[in-house]
Write a protein that binds this DNA or RNA. Structure first.
Length: 276
DNA sequence: AGTGCGGCCTGTCCGC
DNA sequence: TGCGGACAGGCCGCAC
């Protein structure tokens, strides 16, 4: 499901619901394992702590409790939903229910179970196995800019710029959809080796990534099939996609047919005339 | 050290 | 209508 705009949409939706410093009064989880096992003694460790804030790093949601961070990845099909209360048991595909004081239960739903949870002591968060290797946030200009992208792409003769953009060490939050979209906006072929991008192309690419992610957030993300935000809304950016999923349809800029190929096992879409 | 692939899972869709 | 196979927005861990 989720790339940066979808995770950010979820974060904003949940944040609106959560009252300040709400205490965790209950946590229920399913016996099924998600992508990884649940952290040991999850309930005992979190019980009674107050939730200070809900943040996002890359595609991770970070529930910042007093002493621990509950880190959560949505995988491909994870979503958070609200239920007035959790009954005796979780329903099909529901894996976690958080009960915070003074609000309805937050229920994590994930049919494909690629999502996961971890519990990390707050002072160890930055160095933890999930976050320590991550590249810069694309929407923070001080960290992600032309010079940065130009520098880290030098010497990369092999591989493709599309795979390079999806590598979370390069920049976080760009997945399969927004990589294709950003490269189209930048007029750069997805097959180009990163090391041969000019400084000017890096500049345009940085701008394109920012633009695509920003506009997708404004539209509440992209719903292809699964993504729903916490209120159940569908993201409307799907109607703005310029190449993704448009195989054989005319390019909106030049009219040539959009093409698809596979790169590192993932579908890539591009316009053969507009992207060089 | 950089790159590509298998695997984790279920659901859906398409062609036969 | 049923069935097999391909595919789906991510990413770790491994082999090369």
């Amino acid at each position: 499901m989720p790339e940066l705009p979808e995770v950010e949409t979820v974060r904003r939706g949940l944040s609106r619901l959560i009252s300040d410093d709400a205490e965790l009064v209950g946590l229920k989880r399913s016996p099924q394992k998600l992508r990884f096992r649940f952290p040991a003694r999850l309930v005992e460790r979190l019980q009674g702590q107050r939730l200070r804030s809900l943040e996002r790093r890359a595609k991770y949601l970070l529930f910042q409790f007093e002493r621990h961070t509950l880190l959560q990845h949505l995988g491909m099909t994870g979503s958070w939903r609200v239920r007035p209360s959790v009954g005796q048991s979780l329903e099909l595909h529901e894996h976690v229910a958080l009960s915070l004081e003074g609000m309805p239960a937050l229920v994590y739903h994930d049919p494909r179970r690629f999502g996961y949870f971890d519990l990390i002591e707050r002072e160890q968060l930055a160095g933890c196995r999930w976050l320590h290797h991550l590249g810069p946030e694309p929407l923070v200009a001080a960290d992600f800019n032309t010079q940065y992208l130009y520098d880290i792409s030098r010497g990369r003769g092999g591989g493709s710029v599309k795979t390079f953009l999806m590598d979370q060490k390069t920049v976080v939050g760009v997945g399969n959809i927004y990589a294709s979209e950003a490269l189209f906006l930048a007029g750069i072929s997805p097959e180009r080796p990163p090391g041969r991008l000019s400084r000017r192309e890096c500049e345009v690419l940085v701008e394109s990534i920012r633009q695509v992610l920003t506009q997708a957030i404004e539209k509440g993300g992209t719903t292809i099939r699964d993504f729903v935000s916490t209120g159940g809304e569908l993201g409307s950016y799907a109607g703005s996609l310029l190449v993704y999923g448009r195989n054989g349809l005319p390019c909106g800029r030049c009219g040539a047919k959009i093409e698809t190929q596979r790169q590192a096992g993932r579908a890539t879409y591009s316009c053969p005339k507009c992207q060089r």
